[in-house]
Computed example of a mutant assay.
Amino acid sequence: MKVLILEDEEAIRGFVRINLGRNGIEVIEAETGEEALEKLEQEAVDIAILDVMLPTISGFEVCERIRKLYPDMGIIMLTAKTQDTDKVTGLQLGADDYVVKPFSPTELVARVQALQRRLNSSHPAKNELESGPFSISLDERKLYKNREEIDVTPTEFAIMKLFMENANKSVSRDEILDTVWGKHYIGDLKIVDVNIRRIRQKIEADPSRPKYIETVWGYGYLWKGHPN
């Protein structure tokens, strides 16, 4: 696995490099957003760890650019703030996860490894899933609606796969969290709702009145491939 760490504080970059390196993970360092984007053009990276507060291009802007240029790359945001708005902003721009500073090396390594497992999840024997106008290519890891590709992040793809495997069945938030983020995920449960909101914006004609992803209040969500 190869990971890019974008952080303007040299001590934190070194801390991350040492602890990821101890777990067999190759680390590329960048001090600015410009440097990170330049290195991504030269290196094949699996996961980018992005600090939010940077002197020029913010981590949010780098996240948005990465998601457009490298849709299959995993993204973890680093933030010194605990406000929900920072977490939500990163997720809405395409991040897969976030870690709040100060963080323990064990937590960061666990988050990186969990995201890598999601990115490299094994494909089942059947190579396609279909539900109403939607289809998923498990080999290509792509989502289609009426045969038109919809750009989704690896996390959004994993959620859609879970939904389409459980069409017309209520799926709890906890089940989504355990399946997509892993049973040992220690972040905020709201990460599920943020990603569902983002998926609705991509697949629903009117996200405020969703036809396909129905909210089951107090429980989770129901995927309706053939809405009435």
Rank of each mutant, 00 (worst) to 15 (best):
Y221D: 05
R209C: 12
E130V: 11
S172A: 11
M160Y: 08
K68G: 00
E10F: 13
G33D: 11
Y144D: 06
E140K: 14
N120Y: 15
I150C: 09
K202E: 07
E35M: 14
N168T: 11
L37E: 11
G74M: 07
A205N: 13
M164V: 12
V171C: 04
L40Y: 09
T155Q: 09
K39S: 08
D193R: 12
V152Y: 02
G94T: 11
F134Y: 08
G14E: 11
L54N: 07
G182M: 11
K169I: 11
I49A: 10
P207N: 12
I25K: 06
R13S: 13
N146S: 14
R65H: 09
L78Q: 09
K68I: 08
Y221W: 14
N228L: 08
E130W: 03
K145E: 08
G94V: 09
D84F: 09
A167V: 13
Q83S: 14
I18M: 05
K101L: 03
V192A: 04
D8S: 10
E165Y: 01
E175I: 05
I176F: 04
V109R: 06
E140S: 06
V112F: 01
L54S: 03
Y70D: 05
P207L: 08
K161C: 12
V52D: 08
E165N: 14
P71M: 10
L54I: 08
W217C: 02
D139R: 13
S137Q: 06
G182W: 09
D97K: 01
A125H: 09
C63D: 11
G187P: 05
P210L: 05
K202G: 00
V3M: 01
I199N: 02
D97W: 02
V216Y: 00
V100T: 15
F103Y: 13
R147S: 13
I28P: 02
G59F: 00
L177H: 01
G220M: 06
L69H: 10
I66M: 10
T215L: 08
M73Q: 10
K101V: 00
P154C: 12
L162Q: 13
I47Q: 04
F15D: 05
I12E: 03
T56Q: 13
C63G: 03
I191A: 02
E7H: 09
Y70P: 07
E10R: 15
Y98H: 06
L4R: 06
K68E: 13
T179D: 10
E140H: 12
G182V: 03
Q201I: 01
P124W: 12
T153E: 07
E204S: 01
G24P: 02
Y212P: 10
M53Q: 13
D97N: 10
G33W: 07
I150Q: 10
K161F: 10
T79N: 04
Y219P: 00
R17S: 13
H226W: 00
